[in-house]
Amino acid sequence: MAEVASSLRAEGVVDELKKCGVTHVVWLPDTESKYMYDAIQAEPGITLVPICREGEGPAICLGLLMGGKSPVLLIQNTGFFESGDAIRGICLDMDLPLLMMIGYRGYEPSGKPMIDSAGAFTEPMLKTWGIPYHLVDDDSHTPRIGQAFAEAREKSHPVAVLIGREYQ
């Protein structure tokens, strides 16, 4: 995970979500995702569901899945930590086939030790909970989103992609 990225276009990410058949993005903004918000708003086939706190997200996604829709959860790693019990009790206990797109605050693409504890604890936390994850921090990585989406469906288990840089 020490690649130096060039860019990550929000439109490319949204295109990948469309290819997956995503219908809803359940979302709380973070410091890196302004362009992602704009890109989703511009896509009529995807409904943005804004939430007040990240812990609401897994339960809303469960309901959307029960109703036959295809949601993804888009939050920052800080919100991932906050929503811990909802991820445990809903995503893991109820075997939710959910793609979680997690903003990787504190990520160091150079491979240097992360100074920001939000970054340092992200991968250890995912490993502890047995949630597979993949890094996306360049346009060339966007197919990993589709692969992670399919992986979640195949395993009936949450899978994360870590967004390692600001959307542009």
């Binding site: 809803h24 409904t47 569901v49 812990g55 609401e56 997200g57 897994p58 339960a59 809303i60 996604c61 469960l62 309901g63 959307l64 899945l65 029960m66 109703g67 036959g68 829709k69 949601p71 019990d85 909802a86 009790g89 809903i90």
Partner: peptide, 18 residues
Amino acid sequence: GGAMGKASSLGLGIALAR
């Protein structure tokens, strides 16, 4: 059960889907 108050969130998801 449990889920720390997320019943309304689950209901909202179903309501939006259907």
